[in-house]
Design a protein around this nucleic acid. Structure first.
Lengths: 227, 227
DNA sequence: CCCAATATTAAAAAATTGTAAACACCCCAT
DNA sequence: ATGGGGTGTTTACAATTTTTTAATATTGGG
């Protein structure tokens, strides 16, 4: 299982405590961090705070249905790409189609097998990053996400936490441009407000330590890492 | 926005002609290009020739099972990231788990609803597009939104943000004439007020950088892009 | 051939980022 | 408690690039 800097976080929203418990247990056993919500509104609140990587939504919940929650979350930039799985007792084609078209990535009908659910969660995560292990190597740069150590030309480079997380993000998809907003969300979190120059300063520190030509600025857009 | 040039190709492998036909029909109706195979070995052959974007594999097939086909394909670099869906009459948890862990992206049990299958195919493509971003290719021009790179004749061209967005707009529908107003709305936004000559100047810069014969002026109307 | 629309230029204006320094914090060893 | 070192953030300003404007030349359809 690919180990991130912090474990993947999964939010489960269901009004049945039994389901919450059994699913949580199984996903935690797989190494995921799990947070829960008892209804639709709580799901949205909790999601905004914890910014989970994957959200499992029961369709029939008091307050807001899973579909409604999905629709609301998808309008927010922070959850545009979050994986969403619907969970429901409704074994009905047109409901399933509606779920998938609402923006759901998967639709699983109850009664659920916890192991099947876990497999589907794993399959979806595998799609997102097919990274092998906690050590990432790009050119002569080696990034060890567990030990927070970066090595360049066999020389160890000490990075502070934020610097490391920023570099880890940029290197997670070499050449991809990360928008400033995207960086803020993923490194600083959705609710943190920091000044405009904060990102620049961290980028500068990384450039100083690694050599200034590995991170390119795309003015008005963001930054990207390349060998 | 970014429009793919060639339709997505889907390979379906099943030994039941009825399934082949009904699934083909529905996927074609959705705009996909469909190719078929009657057994596992044929699936591998056909896949190598056509390089489909998604493969639907029946599990129980004469010759090689769907699982075996998947395992073989996944070892080939060309199919490392191809989406694979298993289709089977075996409604059995441990088989489903095995399918997902073998490298399958989805596992659908028969009897299948063609509309559900189509929805799941769409959902998977939507997810992949989000992850990899779409690369637009027109002639020898490649526009990569995610990497923010424009390549012409294997040479990288540096465009500023507005230039990039303007080019991306014009190339999103080659040969379509974009009205000046339309351009203003889509590149500058509805609330921004800029002078008339601003568009011209940006068009000029793009022409300079790409070679002046790819954007045509339609006097009194707007601009269009062509190879 | 005329005239409005567009092309071309250069230069001003605006927006964005780079940089250095300072500040506030926290933790830990003294 | 106290002070040093590291971290994260902000500030203020410099440097740079992008975007826009404005002034002038050119074009092409009627």
């Amino acid at each position: 299982m690919a180990q991130e800097i912090k474990p993947r976080t999964i939010l489960i929203a269901d009004d049945e405590p039994d389901i919450l418990e059994i699913v949580s247990f199984n996903l935690q056993a797989e190494g995921y961090e799990v947070i829960t919500a008892k209804n639709g509104n709580e799901a949205i609140e909790v999601a905004k705070i914890h910014n989970p990587d994957l959200i499992i939504l029961d369709v029939m919940m008091p307050g807001k249905t899973g579909f409604e929650v999905c629709k609301i979350l998808r309008t927010l930039p922070a959850f545009e790409n979050t994986i969403i799985i619907f969970l429901t007792a409704l074994n009905d084609d047109s409901t399933e189609i509606k779920g998938l078209e609402t923006g759901g990535d998967d639709y699983i009908t109850k009664p659920i097998s916890p192991r099947v659910l876990t497999s589907r969660v794993n399959a979806l995560f595998r799609r997102i990053t097919k990274e092998t292990g906690s050590v990432l190597q790009i050119g002569d740069l080696i990034i060890d996400r567990e030990k927070y150590i970066v090595t360049s030309n066999n020389e160890e480079i000490t990075l502070a936490r934020k610097e490391f997380e920023l570099l880890a993000l940029l290197t997670s998809k070499p050449s991809k441009v990360f928008l400033r907003n995207e960086i803020l969300h993923k490194v600083w979190g959705t609710d943190v407000i920091v000044g405009d120059r904060t990102i620049d300063v961290h980028i500068r520190k990384i450039r100083q330590k690694l050599g200034s030509d590995c991170i390119t600025t795309i003015k008005g857009v963001g930054y990207k890492f390349h060998m």
